[in-house]
């Protein structure tokens, strides 16, 4: 220990402190700062690139999801339109059917009415004819056959039979 202190070279110590402090400041300005900054910059750029890639992947994923959603929407839209069309068709058919049925009913009804009217007219005609026939018959009976009783009866019966068939 005594020898250590004896041999301690203050000249070397002072030179070392001077040179070393100077070296620290010179290296800080010309070496450590640029080197550490470059290293930092590179690390940041690598990190940035990795993050950008990650982001791009995320975006791609969301884009894909978007695409899918759009596609699904389109498909739904198509389905909807088709359904609407089908519904409309069915509706039109049923409407047409209804209309036709109504028309037919109307026609039948009117036909029935016409038939009824004809029938009524025919019956009225028949009645008129029957009345005029009866008058004719009565005229004939009254005019011709009123002399012989048997003939009269036969005649009446014949007439009535005719009337019946009429």
């Amino acid at each position: 220990m005594d020898k250590l202190i004896q041999d301690f070279s203050y000249g070397l110590f002072i030179w070392q402190v001077l040179v070393f402090v100077l070296l620290i400041f010179l290296l800080r300005k010309f070496a450590w700062k640029p080197i550490l900054e470059a290293v930092n910059e590179r690390e940041e750029s690598i990190e940035g690139a990795l993050k950008a890639a990650e982001k791009a992947r995320e975006e791609m994923k969301s884009l894909q999801a978007d695409n899918e959603a759009v596609l699904r929407e389109a498909r739904e839209e198509r389905e909807r339109i088709l359904k609407e069309a089908r519904d409309m068709k069915n509706k039109m058919i049923s409407e047409a059917k209804d209309a036709a049925a109504t028309e037919a009913d109307k026609a039948i009804i009117s036909a029935k009415a016409a038939i009824e009217a004809e029938k009524t007219a025919a019956i009225a005609e028949l009645k008129n004819q029957a009345a005029s026939l009866s008058i004719d018959v009565a005229e004939k009976i009254l005019g011709q056959e009123l002399s012989a009783e048997n003939k009269q009866t036969a005649m009446i019966g014949k007439i009535i039979e005719d009337v019946k068939f009429n």
């Binding site: 250590l4 041999d7 301690f8 070397l12 110590f13």
Partner: peptide, 8 residues
């Protein structure tokens, strides 16, 4: 050298 290590 002790002077060097002492200064450091």
């Amino acid at each position: 050298n002790i002077a060097i290590t002492f200064s450091l």
